[in-house]
Design a protein around this nucleic acid. Structure first.
Lengths: 188, 188
DNA sequence: CGGTTCCTTTGACTTAAGTCACAAAGTCAT
DNA sequence: ATGACTTTGTGACTTAAGTCAAAGGAACCG
């Protein structure tokens, strides 16, 4: 994947950044390929990059009493980051690839620096963050439902998750035990 | 509260915006006073304002099967908004004053318009949204704890809530029944 | 091919938290 | 104060979901 490809990919996602600004954004991107299990972000570490998934999938989780608690999954075309990346804090979560993946990696410092002079880049950043915050609001809503409805809701809203995520990870994302998920799935 | 007071208040919150930019921010602010029960944001409506609490408190909630589910509380010095305000979507939540309050109201369109030419304003917006997103992440973490630990956590992290919020609202915020909260509080 | 290992399902039992019903204590207006 | 209304606390019971334990299935590897 070369610079032109990256440009095309970015444009596919976002038409807001254009012309010279887009060239400058592309200049702080690089294309990388990693294998299943690779960690994009690790708990406790500061992370200067955000990622766009070209191909593959990732999960985010933290450990609670030794157990993984998944907070989200991400697929093609999605932005992968944690808010700590934007805020410059150490991350509370680990982000790990569920499949071999092709990614565009963006250096946040460079990206933020660009936003100082490029209003369109500043707007793009805000938009991504707002989108992420709305996503977090939807997760809170999901967790407020009784477990069976959580499963039904995700089945409805993001059926692709079922195809690509292990039931163990899905159960942890839905805030229930594997056994409960299994029973809900086999229920009439 | 006049323009100078507003300026002082904003500067107390955020030193990032300075000089001319601050004057321009103040120009899209107005000071209002409202009584307990007033709704700043209503479910299903688009809302063009965000608020800073000078004095008083507010809660945000949505209705689920006729019951209020509180998502957060806000006090002096905090920014009150929902992400739908930034995104221009109808709100999923209602924000209501818990006490008579003094507020600075900011017109989001004007504010966003300012950010096009004022990088410091754009950064302020991003920072508020990032802060809100981190706050939402903390709420998700809270909800993942067993109920007793939720109470202990909030007691530790935000003891002022206990003084100013009814136990009914607090229970709903903590995702438990009033009875459970009452039992947890009276436990040894 | 057989043997690990991991993932998922199922069954029996336990426990955390909810519901319902009622009592006690506060708040408020008259 | 007095009565109406709201908020909080307690007890008895129910239910949802978790835990523990065991057993099929897939996938993986020599």
């Amino acid at each position: 994947m070369n610079q032109t490809d990256i440009q095309d990919f970015l444009q596919g996602l976002q038409s807001q950044v254009n012309g010279d600004a887009l060239d400058e954004v592309v200049a702080c991107c690089s294309f990388i390929q990693l294998t299943r299990g690779a960690k994009l972000i690790e708990t406790g570490k500061r992370h200067p990059f955000l990622y766009l998934i070209v191909q593959g999938s990732a999960k985010s989780y933290y450990l609670s009493e030794g157990k993984e608690v998944c907070t989200w999954f991400a697929f093609e075309g999605e932005v992968v980051s944690t808010m700590s990346t934007f805020a410059g804090h150490p991350s509370n979560e680990t982000v790990e690839l569920l499949e071999d993946a092709a990614l565009i990696r963006i250096h946040v410092k460079d990206f933020k620096a660009l936003s100082v002079n490029r209003a369109s880049v500043a707007r793009l950043i805000t938009e991504w963050v707002v989108e992420h915050a709305i996503f977090l609001e939807s997760l809170l809503y999901l967790q407020s439902l009784p477990v069976k409805m959580r499963y039904e809701h995700i089945l409805e809203a993001r059926p692709e998750i079922l195809q690509r995520v292990s039931l163990t990870d899905l159960a942890s994302f839905l805030g229930m035990s594997r056994e409960s998920l299994s029973r809900i799935r086999s229920a009439p």
